[in-house]
């Protein structure tokens, strides 16, 4: 096979993959700017009226701010826990490290409906089911493996001598952690934290089980609206989700890209 032909096949495959991956997003964004009254792609004309509508919809707005709160709780819980667990996992020969590795695979194996029901029962028993913060904690629990992964990947490339050097400089264990270990794993912490934020923001199934009419989060609210009547404002909400995800990626590139640059690795 000649080189130009190889290159052509390569780019055709790449183009196909990009198209398939971005098609849902393109359709949703396209449908959200329609000037008609039904969801349609290609859109009929162009208008931002559906964005205007969601900007005035109180239920969607409240659900949006609740989702933000849930995500912040999730980040607040998962970052300290995930950071310490990630460092410990990559650093020490833990008893039960195997069990931990299995735990890290759980998000891919246990159906969310199972963990959701489990948590619904437990939270119900604890009588905290109507509150918003347990939803954030639940999101932290089910997604924790992602931040543990991200931090332990950073910690694995950490030079152990850096911590010995800090001790040699007179830093005790706590000072060593804050001055040397934590800055070194910061890229992993930032990556994991943003990931946790986005995952909690978009978490649907577990939120559905743990929320009631007073505490619906944005994905649940969207689902409720779909069940009544499908209008282009839902496409506009979905576009907001896409924008949040893109913002997270941009932030990651800025923060971690910068961090990696500073580490000259």
């Amino acid at each position: 096979m000649t080189a130009p032909l190889q290159r052509a096949i390569f780019w055709i495959l790449v183009g196909f993959a990009v198209l398939i991956l971005s098609l849902p997003m393109v359709i949703v964004v396209g449908a959200s700017v329609t000037s008609g009254n039904i969801i349609a792609f290609p859109p009929e004309g162009f208008s931002l009226k559906w964005y205007e509508k969601i900007a005035q919809a109180r239920d969607l707005q409240q659900a949006f701010w609740r989702s933000i709160q849930v995500s912040l709780v999730c980040v607040a819980v998962s970052v300290p826990v995930g950071t310490l667990a990630g460092i410990a996992l990559s650093r020490y020969r833990l008893r039960g490290a195997m069990a931990l590795q299995v735990y890290l695979l759980l998000p891919f194996t246990v159906p969310l409906i199972a963990s959701g029901i489990g948590m619904m029962l437990v939270f119900g028993e604890w009588r905290i089911l109507g509150a918003l913060w347990p939803v954030g904690v639940a999101c932290a629990v089910i997604n924790l493996p992602f931040i543990i992964w991200s931090v332990s990947a950073s910690a694995a490339s950490l030079d152990r001598d850096l911590e010995l050097a800090a001790q040699n400089c007179g830093a005790g264990p706590i000072a060593t952690f804050f001055h040397v270990t934590l800055p070194a794993v910061m890229p992993g912490v930032i990556t994991g934290g943003l990931l946790m934020f986005v995952l909690a923001m978009t978490e649907f199934l577990v939120s559905l089980l743990l929320t009631d009419a007073r505490t619906v989060t944005l994905p649940v609210q969207v689902y409720n609206n779909i069940r009544s009547i499908i209008t282009p404002d839902l496409a506009a909400v979905s576009t907001i989700f896409v924008v949040i995800a893109l913002a997270a990626v941009w932030l990651l590139d800025r923060l971690v890209g910068l961090e990696i640059f500073l580490k000259s690795k």
């Binding site: 030079d159 001598d161 850096l162 010995l164 050097a165 800090a166 001055h179 040397v180 800055p183 070194a184 500073l262 580490k263 000259s264």
Partner: peptide, 10 residues
């Protein structure tokens, strides 16, 4: 002084 120096990169 460490073998790989272990200077703090940040």
């Amino acid at each position: 002084v460490f073998q790989k120096l272990a200077l703090f990169p940040h």
